[in-house]
Design a protein around this nucleic acid. Structure first.
Length: 415
DNA sequence: TCTGGGGTCCTAGGACCC
DNA sequence: TCTGGGGTCCTAGGACCC
């Protein structure tokens, strides 16, 4: 084998639930779930009852009658997640953060300082446990894909190092759904073709896999099943789109519902774009009807935008188009706005309005510059006095189904 | 008593250009 | 003039990940 296993994948166990148990010792050893309507994280005691993330709260309670719902310490989630990633960063600068509680790292350049990859992994686990009080599992292998699988196998609170000489033996016995890129739909197709283990996938003719899953997915999964994974650690990943969505329960598809909801979503998205001076050209809206069927509409502008009112008006036009095409759908359950085609050359726009594309659409509207400057002054007030100090009323969203903004921020990717 | 919210990537068809 | 091929962009939808 040419290169030794130096890729680490570190994953905090049942993260939000572990933080709640850390902060409140009376919750330790008990089945708890973070969330309410939907379970966002379940402690291992709850997982033993079959409770999982993404599960409706009602179902979770049915599975586990003693389940304790808790949560809400958003600042602590962010603080502890950051701190854990920083521990990894003390060993190597080659850290790729995937989410609040998960990161890849490559320790190839620092083994002379800190010992073997396995020793580094153990040191990370020990420090996160001692300094932060949280369990973290680590997988070590030659590729990202295998390291990620190893950390899943290591859970809870474990370490798995995959010996390069035994990679395929390790990989091929595992079920296909552990592979990155195999979700429910792909798993169902593979099962229908008699493929349930990674080994069976590996030994299925690549052409057959391509026909089954499409060229790109087929190619990729076959390669991964043989542990061919060329991906390297990428330290500075920036998002290529920014969006916001809001579940509405069941609301009539009327202007009085749609306009304020889209204002609020546009405000969230556009504020983020302006904060990083990264406007985008493509606006996509998503409308989910009462029966959970969803439709998207998008438009690509000549110039990138980041002004709240312009984004909101374009989104309204798109949503009106959707509703006009579906006249029988009179109730909606979700609205979303996303801006993509984000300008990569972040040096050229900065303070420019870049909303002129809209003026042809709405001749009576205020000029782009005026709106952009109005947004900028709102941004400045919020920087000093907080988000709620000024802006578009969010009353229309109602507190019933909406997730707190602090929680949304945890999921945002760096723009 | 029908499941949140933030993202990424792929596919397929059509428009358009060379 | 007719025919064809390749590349790129846009749109809509779907699958997947955390």
């Amino acid at each position: 084998m040419d290169n030794p296993p130096t890729i680490l994948h570190a994953d905090l166990d049942a993260f939000y639930a572990s933080v709640e148990q850390l902060l409140d010792p009376s919750l330790r050893g008990k089945p708890i779930a973070v969330g309410g309507g939907v379970v966002l994280a379940a402690s291992y005691e709850a997982k033993a009852f079959g409770v999982k993330g993404g599960m409706p709260g009602r179902k979770a309670r049915a599975l586990c009658p003693d389940l304790i719902f808790t949560g809400g310490h958003f600042k602590d989630y962010q603080r502890l997640g950051d701190a854990a990633i920083r521990v990894i960063g003390d060993f190597t600068p080659l850290v790729e953060r995937i989410s609040i509680d998960e990161a890849f790292a490559d320790v190839k350049g620092c083994t002379h300082l800190f010992g073997s990859p396995a020793e580094i992994a153990q040191a990370i686990r020990k420090r996160v446990r001692l300094e932060l009080g949280l369990p973290i599992s680590v997988g070590v292998a030659r590729t990202k894909h295998l390291a990620k699988i190893a950390s899943q196998v290591a859970k809870p609170d474990g370490l798995v190092v995959v010996d390069p000489a035994a990679e395929l033996a390790f990989l091929h016995d595992l079920p296909v759904e552990l592979m990155w890129g195999v979700g429910p739909a792909t798993q169902a197709r593979l099962t229908a073709a008699g493929i349930t283990t990674i080994g069976q996938l590996a030994y299925t003719h690549c052409g057959a896999v391509r026909r089954l899953l499409g060229p790109a997915a087929g190619e990729k999964l076959t390669a991964l099943a043989w542990n061919h994974d060329p991906r390297e650690i990428r330290t500075h990943q920036r998002a290529h789109s920014a969006g916001a969505q809001s579940a509405l329960g069941r609301k009539p598809a009327t202007e009085s519902v749609i306009r304020p909801a889209l204002r609020h979503l546009a405000d969230r998205v556009a504020t983020r774009l302006r904060a990083k001076a990264r406007p985008g050209r493509t606006v996509t809206v998503r409308v989910r009807f009462a029966d959970l069927r969803a439709v998207t509409r998008s438009v690509t502008l000549d110039a990138p935008i980041s002004a709240t009112t312009i984004l909101a008006e374009i989104a309204e036009d798109l949503v009106r188009g959707v509703l006009a095409d579906h006249p029988r759908e009179t109730f909606i359950s979700l609205l979303a706005i996303s801006v993509s085609h984000i300008d990569d050359s972040s040096w050229l726009q900065l303070e420019l309005p870049l909303g002129l594309a809209d003026e042809k659409r709405r001749p009576g509207a205020k000029p782009g510059m005026a709106r952009y400057l109005a947004d900028r002054s709102i941004d400045k007030v919020r920087q000093r006095f907080g988000w709620e100090a000024v802006g578009y009323a969010s009353v229309a969203l109602g507190p019933r189904h909406s997730v707190p903004d602090e929680f949304r921020e945890l999921a945002e990717k760096e723009l």
